[in-house]
Deep mutational scan, measured.
Amino acid sequence: MASQGTKRSYEQMETDGERQNATEIRASVGKMIGGIGRFYIQMCTELKLSDYEGRLIQNSLTIERMVLSAFDERRNKYLEEHPSAGKDPKKTGGPIYRRVNGKWMRELILYDKEEIRRIWRQANNGDDATAGLTHMMIWHSNLNDATYQRTRALVRTGMDPRMCSLMQGSTLPRRSGAAGAAVKGVGTMVMELVRMIKRGINDRNFWRGENGRKTRIAYERMCNILKGKFQTAAQKAMMDQVRESRNPGNAEFEDLTFLARSALILRGSVAHKSCLPACVYGPAVASGYDFEREGYSLVGIDPFRLLQNSQVYSLIRPNENPAHKSQLVWMACHSAAFEDLRVLSFIKGTKVLPRGKLSTRGVQIASNENMETMESSTLELRSRYWAIRTRSGGNTNQQRASAGQISIQPTFSVQRNLPFDRTTIMAAFNGNTEGRTSDMRTEIIRMMESARPEDVSFQGRGVFELSDEKAASPIVPSFDMSNEGSYFFGDNAEEYDN
Results as ranks from 00 to 15, higher is better:
residue 206 F to D: 02
residue 101 N to S: 13
residue 452 R to T: 15
residue 314 S to L: 02
residue 269 S to G: 13
residue 79 L to R: 05
residue 142 N to Y: 07
residue 290 D to F: 10
residue 309 N to W: 14
residue 405 Q to I: 00
residue 138 I to C: 10
residue 127 D to C: 02
residue 314 S to K: 00
residue 114 E to L: 04
residue 19 R to D: 02
residue 112 D to F: 07
residue 37 G to A: 14
residue 329 V to Q: 00
residue 210 E to R: 02
residue 425 I to M: 09
residue 402 S to F: 10
residue 475 I to F: 14
residue 339 E to H: 05
residue 244 E to H: 01
residue 205 N to V: 06
residue 435 G to W: 10
residue 368 N to M: 07
residue 401 A to L: 12
residue 63 I to Y: 01
residue 151 T to R: 08
residue 108 L to C: 06
residue 167 M to N: 10
residue 247 N to Q: 14
residue 146 A to T: 15
residue 289 Y to P: 07
residue 58 Q to I: 01
residue 468 D to Q: 05
residue 449 E to T: 03
residue 234 A to R: 00
residue 459 Q to V: 13
residue 52 Y to K: 15
residue 463 V to G: 13
residue 200 G to N: 06
residue 107 E to A: 10
residue 405 Q to L: 03
residue 45 T to N: 11
residue 151 T to A: 09
residue 1 M to D: 13
residue 445 I to G: 03
residue 258 F to A: 03
residue 33 I to Y: 06
residue 315 L to S: 05
residue 65 R to G: 13
residue 203 D to E: 13
residue 160 D to I: 01
residue 450 S to I: 13
residue 5 G to M: 02
residue 238 M to T: 08
residue 176 S to N: 04
residue 1 M to N: 12
residue 175 R to P: 04
residue 359 S to V: 13
residue 479 F to Q: 08
residue 118 R to C: 01
residue 345 S to Y: 07
residue 416 R to T: 09
residue 439 D to C: 08
residue 381 L to P: 10
residue 379 L to Q: 07
residue 231 Q to G: 14
residue 241 Q to R: 08
residue 89 P to N: 08
residue 197 I to T: 10
residue 332 A to S: 15
residue 414 V to H: 02
residue 252 E to S: 05
residue 312 V to H: 00
residue 241 Q to W: 04
residue 88 D to Q: 05
residue 33 I to C: 15
residue 453 P to G: 15
residue 445 I to F: 00
residue 2 A to P: 06
residue 197 I to M: 09
residue 226 L to I: 11
residue 266 L to C: 13
residue 459 Q to F: 14
residue 173 P to T: 11
residue 368 N to H: 11
residue 4 Q to L: 13
residue 470 K to S: 05
residue 133 L to H: 02
residue 405 Q to C: 00
residue 42 Q to V: 08
residue 342 R to A: 09
residue 117 R to S: 15
residue 177 G to R: 10
residue 270 V to A: 09
residue 280 V to S: 08
residue 254 E to I: 06
residue 64 E to Y: 07
residue 123 A to G: 14
residue 248 P to I: 10
residue 336 A to D: 13
residue 175 R to G: 08
residue 344 L to D: 11
residue 147 T to S: 09
residue 78 Y to H: 11
residue 15 T to V: 09
residue 218 A to W: 06
residue 274 S to H: 03
residue 203 D to L: 05
residue 296 Y to C: 13
residue 312 V to R: 00
residue 152 R to P: 01
residue 41 I to A: 09
residue 221 R to W: 10
residue 173 P to R: 12
residue 61 L to I: 15
residue 52 Y to E: 01
residue 367 S to A: 15
residue 103 K to E: 13
residue 346 F to P: 00
residue 146 A to N: 06
residue 127 D to F: 12
residue 270 V to L: 09
residue 216 R to H: 06
residue 496 Y to M: 07
residue 283 P to G: 15
residue 90 K to C: 01
residue 181 A to Q: 14
residue 156 R to N: 08
residue 226 L to N: 08
residue 59 N to Q: 03
residue 332 A to N: 04
residue 380 E to P: 02
residue 119 I to V: 11
residue 291 F to H: 03
residue 224 N to W: 09
residue 414 V to M: 07
residue 178 A to C: 00
residue 55 R to V: 09
residue 54 G to N: 13
residue 216 R to W: 08
residue 358 L to N: 03
residue 367 S to N: 11
residue 465 E to F: 02
residue 226 L to D: 06
residue 73 E to G: 09
residue 277 P to Q: 11
residue 329 V to L: 15
residue 439 D to F: 01
residue 19 R to C: 11
residue 228 G to Y: 01
residue 29 V to W: 05
residue 371 M to Y: 03
residue 50 S to K: 00
residue 399 Q to L: 09
residue 175 R to V: 09
residue 425 I to K: 01
residue 449 E to W: 10
residue 7 K to M: 03
residue 297 S to R: 14
residue 11 E to N: 05
residue 76 N to A: 15
residue 45 T to C: 05
residue 123 A to L: 04
residue 292 E to P: 09
residue 123 A to N: 11
residue 485 G to N: 10
residue 215 T to A: 15
residue 254 E to K: 12
residue 91 K to L: 01
residue 209 G to L: 04
residue 148 Y to D: 09
residue 146 A to H: 02
residue 234 A to K: 07
residue 427 A to K: 05
